[in-house]
Amino acid sequence: MSGAVEKVRFGFSVNKDRQIDYDANLKNVSDIVQKAEPTFNLCISCGTCASTCTAGKFTDFSLRKVILMVRRGETKGLENEITKCMLCGKCQLVCPRGVSTRNLILQIHKALKTGAL
């Protein structure tokens, strides 16, 4: 069905839904990460990490967003996103909730690589 040939050229295609479909998304990465680094649960999305981020100076990398995406199961493309991190640890120093941000990055990446299947 899905591989149908476009017979009629309409000049447009169906827009992709931006909506996060939480029920359809896989949460296994989130499950793995929260076990591997329990402080993952503590993030309150204050954004201190993203604002001090060394990589964030040059890119739109935001650990706050990454954490939320993992929580929501929006893991597509996240693997690339995480490669921007320099692991410098500034975020860890400024995080008010004591999130072990560096390990979090490592664990998220590991989970994306190994657990996302």
Binding site: R18, Q19, D21, S45, R64, K65, R72
Partner: peptide, 12 residues
């Protein structure tokens, strides 16, 4: 809306 992600969210 997951306002922190800036995306609408549907959940059952």
């Amino acid at each position: 809306e997951d306002t922190l992600l800036g995306k609408p969210l549907k959940i059952g």
